[in-house]
Simulated scan of single mutants.
Amino acid sequence: MSTGTLIAVLIGMTVVTYGVRVAPLFLAGRVTIPESVLRWMNYVPPAVLATLVLPSLITPDSHTNALELGLNNPLLLAAVPTVLVAWRTKNMYATVGVGVLAVALLRWFAPFG
């Protein structure tokens, strides 16, 4: 690949990468987002979080990737009080604290392999 081609590819990738991120800023004042779309967008962060967290909860052994939904999965057990605190308090600090405490207590005191 020649130097000119490489530079053109890098410039093209830069334009595409930043264009996608900057375009909404230019359109934000000109386009009115419908209320139904705004309500729908409120569900995006919890859906992304669930997508990132759930695999590690149900397959805690990264070597075998075995599905573990029983009572011998400490991460899944720790998720129960964490989700309850998040649901009831809607407080991020309380949720993180309960989650860390639950995992620590289960790892220290529960008879998991």
Rank of each mutant, 00 (worst) to 15 (best):
M1K: 12
M1P: 12
S2D: 13
T3P: 14
T3S: 15
G4I: 15
G4Y: 12
G4M: 14
T5E: 14
L6K: 12
I7E: 06
I7C: 05
I7V: 11
A8Y: 06
A8S: 09
A8Q: 09
V9C: 02
V9R: 12
L10Q: 14
G12Q: 01
G12E: 02
G12K: 00
M13H: 07
T14C: 12
T14G: 13
T14A: 15
V16H: 04
T17H: 14
Y18L: 15
Y18Q: 10
G19T: 01
A23R: 04
A23T: 10
A23N: 07
L25K: 15
F26V: 05
F26E: 08
F26D: 10
L27A: 08
L27F: 13
L27W: 09
A28Q: 11
A28V: 03
A28L: 05
T32G: 10
E35V: 13
E35A: 11
E35T: 11
E35F: 02
S36H: 03
S36K: 06
V37G: 04
L38W: 07
W40G: 03
M41N: 12
M41W: 15
Y43A: 10
Y43P: 03
Y43D: 07
V44P: 07
V44N: 07
P45G: 01
P46N: 02
P46R: 02
A47Y: 08
V48A: 10
L52C: 02
L52N: 00
V53C: 05
V53E: 05
L54Q: 06
L54K: 07
S56T: 13
L57V: 06
T59D: 04
P60G: 04
P60A: 03
D61M: 00
S62G: 12
S62D: 11
S62Q: 10
S62K: 09
S62Y: 07
S62N: 10
H63L: 05
A66C: 09
A66W: 00
A66Y: 02
L67M: 01
E68V: 12
L69A: 00
L71F: 09
L71H: 11
N73F: 00
N73Q: 01
P74K: 02
L75D: 02
L76E: 01
L76Y: 05
L77N: 00
L77P: 03
L77Y: 05
L77R: 01
A78M: 01
A78T: 03
A79W: 00
V80L: 08
P81Q: 01
P81Y: 01
L84P: 06
V85W: 05
A86V: 01
A86R: 03
A86Y: 07
W87Y: 14
W87P: 00
W87E: 09
R88Q: 09
R88G: 07
R88P: 03
R88T: 11
T89C: 05
K90R: 14
K90A: 11
N91R: 04
N91W: 04
M92H: 11
M92C: 11
M92D: 11
M92E: 11
M92T: 12
Y93C: 07
Y93V: 08
T95W: 07
V96C: 10
V98L: 08
G99A: 05
G99F: 03
L101G: 07
L101T: 08
V103L: 04
A104Q: 09
A104G: 08
L105M: 12
L106Y: 02
F109E: 14
A110H: 03
A110P: 04
P111V: 03
G113Q: 15
G113F: 13
G113R: 15
G113C: 13
